[in-house]
Nucleic acid binder design. Structure first.
Length: 914
RNA sequence: GGGCUAAUAGCUCAGUUGGUUAGAGCGCUGCCCUGAUAAGGCAGAGGUCGGAGGUUCAAAUCCCCCUUGGCCCA
């Protein structure tokens, strides 16, 4: 007897076992070995999107990294040279804020930057360990970090290209500003709090009245920031809303129809004396001109979708210098961006009347001025939620300052990007419509930030004429310095070190300059990583074959990478872009701390192991949201057990108990054509699986792979092939061709299966690989993709498909017999089968059929039995009649027959004879 | 409010160009086995295909509306 035996444990114990496997990979320098094995082969360039080096990884990051790892490992095992340089996004506000928390009031940019660098480096290390623990294989000894000076220098090269091509320009833009702290604020630095403010209705005299209206007409606006009225350059209406002109005494007023009652009431008008004269759609009024109440200037009526009917009059006071929505609608109408306020919140000479007055005091004075001019309809004090500075807790203002932009709106960049999108493969395909619709609507890209933790924008200002200078020759010089010293030099070194010798202001000839204080938006850092990394790392090449990130990156990294790439190098940086959805809880809700449905990768790994997490990733359809819950994880753990046990059983049968040796593929293998029919049949199924799985990997449909592998393990192997072949494996003579045929087949199946699962169940595949007897690469990841040698024999396939369908039907008949206590094990049974239209080969294959059914005897009847215990299957035209097998049970093989010598059946006696 | 996207058994997924009684694996329940044993085999139960309407001889599939999620904007 040769019973199965293996040291591959049934209980996986992954949380304990996986770190050992990690140690093994580390010891043998697996990444380097994989690289040198594939060096010179066709290259597959994957470019890793950099996670932000702030905090521990969450389940979404884990999902993303595992998906990447699956692709990279598959491609590599398929024979491609696939270097994987991981990266981190290390600049930016969140890190700067964290560092500032620790520094408590420190203002020295260099000290802040040092703290930021340490903070980012710390979390880069932490995240890297977490990625390693997930089983991802990458060049962790040489990652890319956006604060690295080589990165920074090359990033500036991309910027230089874009400057040369004329994409970079400067324009005013409103930003949050704290006049008390004299600083720009980011959105993350804003806190909302209640604030007392004047609420005023103001009338603007119409210079061109709406059609059909006679006499003086006024457009009514409402605001809670009277100090922004000097910046008014338009009145905005919603194109689809209903507006009306109503008359009160000699004057007529324009407001949204539904708001007229509240406007009239606030203005102290007697509602009975307010008569609607004419109605208009907002769009009909576009282009009419009103007059600013106290500045000699027109204020045209414009249209915008941001107008609401919640409060006010439906005619929105528009000051592009003091609000982001006003600014955006203003760009469409080319309105001037006025912001006559200095950095301490005082009016400048641009609004001479109140020069030097702080905007807070100015509110009351503007109200008085409006009253004097007869423009004020009403004023009262209200309390509303208003943005405040997180540091000094005082109200902030919107103030326009010059910012650096990349031109997308006009010119060629938008068009070229849209065109480039057509040459990219988007997976899923809706990625194309998603990114293009975003590109069509996106405004110019504001790339400047008023912070210190980032790459400086290499511009200079002439101290004499105040001109901003952004010149290729100067930028090149800056790049040289940055490459040598890193961007800290921008803060440490004198301006002259960055300028060519004898450099003079091209406008006024002065030699005195100051450096720009703004830094780049971090999206510009990561947006240039394609060029930086694919060019700087010798094994990589531009453009990338694949980017793989969450679907939020259509607005983020996919788009910023495209803008810099098309802008500087006229082509997309990627050939294929794969996107995945977001991880949500078991009910499809997003994860949030407040709901308490967050599941951390660490939690899954410590309970189930990384392979179960990887299995979850691979079995989910990532196109849309991906659900995770305790139930889902435990289900994956169950699925895992089935695969693991199948592998274990395969391994266990490569051992020969009789001589305490392992099956040796080199000497014991049986050629395909010499193998038992059943073995050849299962090899055909194996070959089908291989091709199916390969296609799924190629089309990035990983979630189908595990489905197929599971089915194969459970159905084709466990309940069909392996159940049948046990008899042959256990009872045949150790080196009998029958047994060797099965073992050869099992060896090939196992080898293939381990390679197929390795990109997903990396730890388990490696562990099982180490138990695989015979000559083999030291790691499953150094193995070549399997080539299964089978001869597709359609007759064989048809025959066994037919047997399998008989087996499926016979199961029901056997179950009935079992329920009637006639039999227990199926070998207790003898089965008579009537088949309405039997194929020719049926009678000659009785013994094979008996083995397939795992019964002691099979008889084919020429006509249907009258036996009432026989069960009919009308659909298949089978009739089964089950009896207790005759003879006695052989103690060795458990089959029933007339026993012979030493109480064994004929076969067992033969097999045991010395 | 807008763009993109989704909804099929308890769970993860199939379901071709509309065409029999909507499938698989897992889980669940029952039975069997005790030579894969914290395993293995067999059988069974489980679905108004998110909802309403429409086109059609025929709709999970095509059209329209709605509901509920998700991402990104406003």
């Amino acid at each position: 007897m040769n019973l199965p035996k293996t040291t591959f444990p049934m209980k996986a114990n992954l949380p304990q076992k996986e770190p050992e496997t990690l140690g093994f990979w580390d010891n043998i320098h697996l990444y380097e070995k994989v690289m040198s094995l594939r060096k010179g082969k066709e290259r597959f360039v994957f470019h890793d999107g950099p996670p932000y080096a702030n905090g521990h990884i969450h389940i979404g990051t884990a999902l993303n990294k595992v998906l990447k790892d699956i692709v990279v490992k598959y491609k590599s095992m398929k024979g491609f040279h696939v270097p994987y340089t991981p990266g981190w996004d290390t600049h930016g506000l969140p890190i700067e804020l964290k560092a500032m928390e620790q520094l408590k009031g420190e203002t020295d940019p260099l000290k802040i930057r040092t703290a930021c660098r340490e903070y980012a480096a710390k979390f880069q290390r932490i995240q890297q360990q977490e990625f390693v623990r997930l089983g991802t294989l990458a060049d962790y000894s040489n990652p890319y970090l956006t604060f690295d000076r080589n990165f920074e220098a090359r990033e500036l090269e991309v910027f230089l290209k874009m400057v040369e091509k004329g994409y970079v320009f400067r324009r005013l833009k409103p930003i949050y500003w704290c006049p008390r702290c004299v600083t720009a604020l980011a959105e993350a630095e804003i806190e909302y709090d209640d604030h007392k403010a004047p609420s005023i209705f103001v009338r603007f005299r119409m210079q061109t009245p709406p059609p059909g209206i006679k006499g003086p007409v006024y457009a009514v606006i409402w605001t809670t920031t009277p100090w922004t009225i000097p910046g008014n350059t338009a009145i905005c209406l919603h194109p689809d809303f209903d507006y009306a002109v109503f008359r009160h005494g000699d004057d007529a007023y324009l407001a949204a129809e539904s708001l007229i009652p509240s406007v009239a009431k606030a203005s102290g008008f007697d509602p009975l004396n307010c008569i609607i004269e004419k109605k208009f759609k907002g769009r009909e009024l576009e282009g009419l001109k009103a007059l600013h109440p106290f500045i000699e200037r027109e204020s045209p009526l414009i249209l915008g979708d941001h107008v609401t009917l919640d409060t006010g009059s439906g005619c929105v006071h528009t000051a592009p210098g003091h609000g982001i929505e006003d600014y955006q609608v203003g760009l469409k109408y080319s309105l001037p961006v006025l912001s006559p306020v200095d950095d301490r919140g005082r009016f400048t000479a641009e609004f001479e009347l109140m020069q030097g007055v702080h905007v807070e005091e100015a509110n009351a004075r503007i109200v008085e001025l409006l009253r004097d001019k007869g423009a004020l309809l009403q004023t009262e004090e209200i309390t509303h939620s208003y943005p405040h500075c997180w540091r000094c807790k005082k109200p902030v203002i919107f103030r326009s300052t010059p910012q650096w932009f990349i031109r997308v709106e006009d010119g060629s960049l938008r068009k070229n990007c849209l065109e480039a999108c057509d040459h990219v493969r988007w997976v899923p395909s809706f990625g194309h419509s998603r990114i293009t619709s975003m590109l069509r609507n996106r405004p110019d890209w504001c790339i400047s930030r008023q912070r210190v933790w980032g790459v400086p924008i290499p511009a200079f200002y002439c101290l004499q004429c105040q001109e901003a200078l952004l010149e290729p020759a100067v930028i090149s010089k800056v790049i040289e310095r940055v490459r040598k010293f890193g961007t800290d030099c921008w803060w440490t070194d004198d301006f002259s070190t960055f300028l060519p010798k004898e450099y003079r202001c091209p406008h006024c000839g002065s030699g005195d300059f100051r450096k720009e204080q703004d830094i780049f938006d971090v999206w510009f850092d990561s947006g240039t990583s394609h060029w930086v990394v694919l060019g700087l790392w010798p094994d990589l090449a531009w453009p990338a074959d694949l980017f793989l990130e969450g679907s939020d990156q259509h607005r983020g990294w996919f788009q910023t990478s495209l803008l810099t790439s098309v802008g500087a190098f006229d082509a997309a940086p990627y050939r294929t872009v794969l996107t995945h959805g977001f991880v949500v809880d078991g009910e499809g809700r997003k994860m949030s701390k407040s709901i308490g449905n967050v599941m951390a990768p660490e939690e899954v790994i410590s309970k189930y192991g990384a392979d179960i997490l990887r299995l979850w990733v691979a079995s989910s359809d990532y196109h849309d949201d991906i659900r995770i819950s305790k139930q889902i994880m435990s289900q994956n753990a169950d699925a895992y057990r089935k695969i693991r046990n199948t592998i274990r059983f395969l391994l266990a049968n490569l051992y020969d108990q009789s001589n305490d040796r392992f099956f040796d593929y080199g000497t014991n293998a049986v050629a395909f054509n010499a193998r038992v029919d059943l073995d050849r049949y299962i090899m055909l199924k194996m070959s089908d699986l291989l091709h199916d799985v390969e296609n799924c990997y190629e089309s990035y449909e990983f979630y189908r792979i595990l489905q197929k592998i599971n089915n194969f393990c459970a159905t084709d192997l466990s309940s069909f092939y392996l159940d049948i072949v046990k008899d042959r494996l256990y009872t045949s003579r150790t080196d009998s061709p029958l047994r060797r045929s099965a073992q050869t087949t099992i060896h090939e199946i196992l080898n293939t299966l381990l390679i197929l699962i390795a990109p997903v169940l990396s730890f388990t595949a490696e562990e099982a690989w180490s138990h695989l007897p015979g000559d083999k690469p030291e790691s499953v990841f150094l193995a070549d993709w399997p080539v299964v040698c089978v001869e597709n024999d359609e007759q064989l396939r048809e025959r066994f498909d037919f047997f399998a369908s008989i087996k499926a039907e016979a199961g029901k008949a056997l179950e009935e017999a079992r329920a009637g206590k006639l039999i227990g094990h199926s070998l207790d049974a003898s089965v008579e089968i009537f088949c309405a239209s039997p194929p020719d080969y049926l009678k000659e294959s009785l013994d094979t059929l008996r083995q397939v059914l795992i019964v002691s005897a099979v008889k084919i009847l020429d006509q249907a039995s009258d036996d009432s215990s026989a069960s009919w299957d009308e659909k298949k035209n089978f009739q089964f009649s089950v009896r207790k097998a005759s003879g006695s049970k052989c103690p060795r093989c458990w089959q029933y027959s007339e026993l012979q010598n030493q109480g064994l059946c004929a076969r067992c006696f033969r097999e045991t004879k010395v």
